[in-house]
Amino acid sequence: MRKEELREQIRENLLSLNTWLRGFFMLLYAVACYVAIIVTGIVMLFQFGVVLLTGKVNDRLLPLGQSLSIYINQILLYLTYNSEEKPFPFNSWPTVMASAQEPVVNLPNEPEPPPKAE
């Protein structure tokens, strides 16, 4: 490419409405991702408190945590140009795949730490 052609290509890219529109949506989704991470943190802390007090998870919170995680993933895919599909509110809210009775994540059991010597 010649120098003039390169300049013209850069000029076209800078004046492209689609690029600036994508940038605007990226900014909005970055804010939405920040809010979703804060809400996920609140759900996480509440769920941890429930487990501390009752010894079991709150089944009603599992779908919310899972859908928030999927939503954050969708936003990050859009922000990093790995997806052209805009997440919620331009598409439907992520659906939860597992029912409340099934575990969302199946992690191996870890051994309990040894008791502290007093």
Rank of each mutant, 00 (worst) to 15 (best):
R2D: 12
R2N: 13
K3Y: 09
K3T: 11
L6W: 02
E8W: 05
Q9T: 09
Q9M: 09
N13E: 15
L14H: 03
L15K: 07
L15A: 13
N18H: 00
T19G: 10
W20R: 12
L21W: 01
R22S: 07
F24G: 03
F25P: 02
M26E: 14
M26D: 10
L27F: 15
L27S: 13
L27M: 15
L28Q: 12
L28H: 09
Y29G: 06
V31N: 02
V31D: 00
Y34Q: 04
Y34D: 03
A36W: 02
V39I: 15
V39Y: 08
V39A: 11
T40C: 00
T40G: 05
T40R: 00
G41P: 03
G41C: 07
I42M: 04
V43D: 07
V43E: 05
M44A: 07
L45C: 05
F46A: 03
Q47P: 01
Q47M: 10
G49W: 07
L52G: 01
L53N: 05
L53R: 03
T54L: 10
G55I: 02
K56A: 07
K56V: 13
N58E: 15
N58G: 01
D59C: 02
D59T: 00
D59F: 08
P63G: 14
Q66H: 12
S67N: 03
S67H: 07
L68V: 02
Y71M: 04
Y71P: 08
Y71I: 13
Y71T: 13
I72M: 10
Q74V: 03
Q74H: 07
I75R: 00
L76K: 12
L77A: 14
L77D: 05
L77E: 14
L77V: 00
Y78H: 12
Y78A: 08
L79Y: 12
E85K: 14
P87I: 11
P87D: 09
P89W: 12
S92I: 00
W93A: 14
W93M: 12
W93T: 15
M97P: 01
M97C: 01
Q101S: 09
Q101M: 01
E102Y: 05
V104N: 06
V105D: 00
V105E: 06
L107Q: 14
L107Y: 13
N109V: 07
E110F: 13
E110L: 15
P111C: 01
P111A: 13
P111D: 15
E112A: 14
E112F: 10
P113A: 11
P113Y: 11
P114C: 03
P114D: 08
P115H: 06
P115G: 04
K116I: 15
A117W: 03
A117V: 02
